[in-house]
Computed example of a mutant assay.
Amino acid sequence: MSKKGIFIVSLDFELNWGVHDVFTLGHYQENIVGVRQAIPRMLELFNHFDIHATWATVGMLFFDNKKELLANLPELHPSYADAAFSPYDKLASLVGENEQQDPLHFGASLIKEIMDYPNQELATHTFSHYYCLETGQTAAQFEADVQASVKVAKAIDQSTKSMIFPRNQINHDYLQICKVNGIQCFRGHEDSWVYQVGPFHNKGIIKRMLRLADCYLPIFGDHTYSIDQVTTEPIVNLPSSRFLRPYHTSLKSLEPLRLRRIKKSITNAAKKGEIFHLWWHPHNFGKDIESNLGFLTEILIHVATMREQYGLTSLTMAEASTLALQGMDSHTIRSR
C-alpha cells in the first residue's frame, strides 16, 4: 500500500477567555459574538468534507452558568507577575449569570453542538487559558489547571488526549504533567526560528512581519513532516504547519497568494505521505464570516481532491498521535 498523507485541523476554542487581557469587549466583541454563527457552519463544512477536527477548548467554557463555573475552579490559580494575564480576578465582573445573558464567556451549548457531529475531538486548551512561559506561574499551578480541565471534560463523558498550549507557549518541563494526567499529544510550533515562542511581551516585530509574509510567500517552507519522525516522549508532538489567518479587507488582493500557499503545501504533504497541520481560532471567523468560510471551503475542496488523487486522509490529533504511539506510519492508513 502506498504511503498516505495526513491532514490535521486543530482549533483553539476560547471565546473571550483567550483575549481578555489583549482586547476590550468593545474592540473585539463582534468576533466573539460571531463565533456562534461561524462554528455551526464550520461543523457543516467538516461534516460535508469528512474532516476530523480537534477542538482545543478552554475549560471555563464548559459551563452554562456562573454558579457552576465558580464551583469547579481549581484550588491553585496562576500567580503571574503580570496580574492582567489571569482571568480569575475578572470573574466578579462577568456581564451575565449564564450563557444566554453572557455568550462571551460561557459555551456549554456550543460544546454540545460540536460533540453532536461525527469525528470531532474535544481537546484541552487548559482550564483558564494558562500561560506556561509567563513569569510567576508554577508547575503545581499548571497541574491544578490541567486536572480541572480534564475533570470538566470527563463530566460530559469526554476523555482528554490532546493539549494545545495557549499562545503556543510550550513549556517542555510541563509535558510530563500532561502525560500523568492522561494527555498523549500536543501541538508544537513550526520548525523555524521565526515560529519560536516566548513570553507574550517578548514578541519581536521582525518575527511578526516574517510570519505574516510567510503566509503568502514560501519563505520558510511547507512545514510538513512524516508521522514516523515525530517526537513521542514524553508525549507526541504534532507540530503546526500553518496558521489559517483570517480574511482582512486591506489584504484582499493577496488572498490568491495565501490560498495558493496553503494548497501547495497540502499537495506536497499528499504526494510525500506527510502531515499538514492547519490551525486557527473560531473567533478568527467571527467577523467577515462569509469570506472566511469561503476561503476554508476552497481549502477543503482541495483536500478532497488530494484524497481522491493520493489518498490523503483526515485525522484528529488524538488519532494521529495514536498511530505514532503504536509505532505505525501512514502506510497503514486506509484512504477515507
Rank of each mutant, 00 (worst) to 15 (best):
M1K: 11
I6M: 11
I6T: 02
I6H: 03
F7C: 12
I8Q: 08
S10W: 10
F13R: 02
G18M: 15
V19Y: 13
V19Q: 13
D21V: 10
V22T: 15
F23M: 10
V33H: 06
R36W: 12
P40D: 06
P40L: 07
M42W: 06
L43W: 06
E44V: 15
F46D: 04
F49D: 09
H52E: 13
T54M: 09
W55A: 08
T57L: 12
V58G: 04
L61T: 15
F62H: 11
F62P: 01
N65C: 11
N65T: 09
D82V: 14
D82W: 02
A84S: 12
A84M: 04
Y88E: 02
D89Y: 10
K90N: 10
A92G: 14
S93C: 07
L94Q: 07
G96P: 01
G96E: 01
N98S: 01
F106C: 01
S109R: 07
S109N: 09
I114W: 01
M115V: 07
N119P: 00
H125K: 00
T126Y: 00
F127R: 02
L133I: 12
E134M: 06
G136A: 09
G136Q: 04
D145M: 06
V146G: 03
Q147D: 02
S149W: 00
I156K: 03
T160H: 05
T160C: 14
M163E: 02
N168I: 08
Y174K: 04
L175R: 03
I177H: 03
C178G: 13
G182T: 08
F186C: 12
W193Q: 05
Y195T: 13
H201A: 14
H201W: 04
G204N: 04
I205Y: 07
Y216A: 09
I219Y: 00
F220N: 01
G221E: 02
G221C: 03
D222N: 09
T224P: 02
Y225N: 00
I227V: 15
D228E: 13
Q229E: 12
T231C: 04
T232E: 00
T232Y: 00
E233G: 01
P234I: 02
P239C: 03
S240F: 05
R242K: 10
T249R: 06
S250K: 05
L254D: 01
P256A: 10
L257T: 02
R258A: 11
L259Q: 14
R260N: 14
I262F: 11
K263Q: 13
A269C: 08
A270D: 02
H277V: 10
P282Y: 08
H283G: 02
N284T: 10
K287Y: 09
I289N: 02
I289K: 06
E290T: 15
N292R: 02
T297Y: 10
I299Y: 03
M306S: 05
Y310S: 04
L312R: 11
T313Q: 07
S314C: 13
L315Q: 03
M317V: 12
M317H: 14
L323Y: 15
L325A: 01
Q326C: 07
M328F: 04
T332G: 03
T332P: 00
I333E: 08
